[in-house]
Amino acid sequence: MRLNDPLITEFSFKGETYSIDLSFDNVLDVFDVLYDEVLNPLEKAETALNLLIGCVPDSDVIDMWNLIYQEFIKIENETSIEYDLQGNPMPVQQEHEQLIDLSIDAESIYASFQQAYGVNLYKEQGKLHWHEFQSLLNGLPDETIMKRIIQIRAWKPKNTDSPDYKANMEKLQRKYSLAREEVE
């Protein structure tokens, strides 16, 4: 994201210009499609394109989808999920541990946007651009619930931590684990 560039609302592909809806809620719908285990990669690309540009080109569907994903959607920060081109979550490397999930953390993200910015994400559906959403999410202040959850997930015990503090943090890590759906 560059502040001296306008937000993306259209792009060119093989000599044609297409309008693109990169509102954050639309992109989240695209991620839902990418997680769908029933659709094959071509069906995922076609559905995603239909959501984003309102049509599916006659040819080069995968090439267009790859361009859109790489240039406009892919999340580039270390606290977010990275996806392969078929929409599957990439394995999390230890040094870039996954600390946030846009689906699991939806309520906390909503509450944090309200708390930090006074932004009601439901009222911003169809308006707030994906790049704006990412920037606001990445810039959440430490006192928001989402930032606190990220800090809990990232916590590693130190020799100087008291046993009570360690026990409390481990309890909180279990509570806010991204794998908690499997545990419950």
Rank of each mutant, 00 (worst) to 15 (best):
Q93C: 01
E95C: 12
I145E: 15
L22R: 00
R2M: 11
K147W: 04
I53M: 14
D84N: 14
P141D: 08
L42Q: 06
P163R: 02
Y110P: 07
Y83M: 01
A179F: 13
E82S: 09
N168V: 09
H129G: 09
I62A: 00
S103C: 02
V92K: 09
W65C: 01
L28A: 04
A45I: 02
G118L: 02
V183D: 15
D29P: 00
L52N: 13
L39V: 06
Q93Y: 07
K127L: 00
Y176E: 14
I75E: 13
E182G: 06
A106S: 08
Q70G: 07
E107Q: 13
L99Y: 12
E97P: 02
L137H: 01
Y18W: 08
A106R: 05
L172F: 14
G15F: 00
P163G: 09
E43Q: 15
P6C: 06
A111F: 13
I81A: 01
Y117A: 05
M64E: 10
E124A: 12
I149F: 13
R2I: 12
G126H: 11
V119T: 10
V27W: 01
A154M: 03
I8P: 07
K74L: 10
L49A: 01
L102K: 05
Q70M: 10
G54M: 03
W155S: 04
M146T: 11
E182R: 12
L137T: 02
Q115A: 08
D58R: 05
Y83G: 00
L99G: 08
K175W: 03
D164Y: 13
N66K: 06
F13R: 05
N40H: 08
E97G: 07
L178I: 08
N168M: 10
K44Q: 03
S80M: 15
N88T: 08
N50T: 11
K14R: 11
H131Q: 08
I100K: 13
E46S: 12
T47L: 10
I8F: 01
G139R: 13
E43D: 15
F13K: 05
L49V: 07
N159W: 01
E16D: 00
S103F: 06
S103V: 04
I109N: 12
Q86I: 02
D84R: 04
T9A: 06
I149S: 02
I100R: 15
V33P: 02
E78W: 05
P157S: 02
S80K: 14
I152F: 06
D84E: 11
Y122K: 11
A154C: 01
I20F: 05
D142A: 15
L178T: 11
H131W: 05
L34K: 01
G87W: 01
W130Y: 07
D84V: 06
Q114V: 14
F72W: 13
E170A: 15
T17P: 00
H131I: 00
I152Y: 09
D105R: 03
V27Q: 00
V56D: 03
K123R: 07
Y122R: 10
L102T: 11
P157I: 03
F133L: 08
M146G: 04
S12E: 01
Y122T: 08
K123I: 01
P89T: 02
T144V: 11
E184Q: 13
F133E: 09
L136E: 08
N77S: 15
S80H: 14
M169C: 05
E124M: 14
Y83V: 00
L172K: 14
L178N: 10
T9C: 07
